[in-house]
């Protein structure tokens, strides 16, 4: 699925070699850091409303409670349709659109103002590409079932895809992205391999839904660098590249969605 198949395999071998390895939880005195703005914004070609979530980062030793940024001014503009939507805060830190309708080919800008801080981003919604079909097959690595989303990449180069699969409505935390650098114009028959976080294998009777997202290159880069950070043993880990100005982390993704489901037999 990804360009880094070989690296994953090497990691597997490294584990194999280190059969005498062991793991333990240790305590490390980590520095504190200034809270950073974290933004998660999505606009799709499906009916709205759409959400922009704003939180702040916390120190490592704090519990996983991430403070919501409330009272921010959040505006999304569809520059093609000339629609300016001022989002309302439907829950703490969760800002919701009221009139926007995501449309392929439209260009969207996002502006957030909070405590004299201005965060901006933009995105162009790609043309939709639909899943033609989906089937399950035994994995070449081990034989457990994996699903294969089938779709055809268009002739022009420069398409970026993200797959989100849900097993019985629980999303797979593994990052699945694909660019068409090496598969331009071809029909995809690569399975979604790996089930991060969710430690069970796909079993008969499982309901699997896959969303195929057509994303832009900036969002692709965000997920690619996030994947690099979480999955490879990088010597120089760094924050994933966000598409925000103003020092915020996260992403503003303007994408199309196509969905297929199946039941594992």
């Amino acid at each position: 699925m990804k360009n880094n198949i070989n690296i994953r395999f090497l990691a597997f071998i490294a584990i194999l070699v280190s059969f005498s390895s062991c793991q333990k939880v240790i305590s490390i005195d980590l520095n504190s850091s200034d809270p950073r703005y974290i933004v998660e914004g999505n606009i799709t070609d499906q009916p709205g409303p759409y959400h922009v979530k704003i939180t702040k980062s916390v120190n490592f030793d704090q519990s996983n409670v991430f403070p919501a940024v409330t009272g921010a001014s959040v505006i999304i503009t569809d520059t093609v349709a000339g629609v300016i939507d001022t989002l309302t805060e439907s829950a703490a830190g969760d800002y919701t659109t009221s009139k926007l309708q995501g449309t392929p080919g439209h260009f969207y800008t996002l502006t957030i103002k909070s405590n004299n801080k201005v965060i901006t981003s933009y995105g162009l919604m790609p043309q939709p590409i639909s899943l033609d079909s989906m089937y399950a097959e035994p994995s070449p690595f081990g034989g457990d079932p994996v699903v294969v989303p089938v779709f055809t990449d268009p002739e022009t180069q420069g398409n970026y895809y993200q797959f989100i699969d849900y097993r019985n409505d629980t999303p797979n935390t593994e990052i699945f992205i694909l660019d068409d650098k090496f598969v331009n114009g071809q029909t995809n028959r690569q399975p979604l391999q790996g089930r991060g976080g969710d430690d069970g294998k796909l079993k008969p009777g499982d309901h699997v839904r896959v969303d195929l997202l057509c994303i832009d290159s900036a969002v692709y880069k965000y997920y690619a660098t996030l994947d690099q950070l979480t999955n490879s043993n990088s010597a120089t880990p760094a924050n994933p590249l966000s598409n925000f100005t103003g020092g915020a982390l996260g992403y503003f993704s303007v994408h199309t969605v196509s969905t297929k489901s199946l039941i594992i037999r």
């Binding site: 850091s33 998660e40 980062s57 490592f60 996983n64 760094a238 996260g250």
Partner: peptide, 24 residues
Amino acid sequence: VSFPSGKYIVDNQTRFLYTERNGY
């Protein structure tokens, strides 16, 4: 090495915040 000096949440996943290079 570079260790995280903070954390945040995106897509319902805890992610780690890196600040300086090789600060640990």
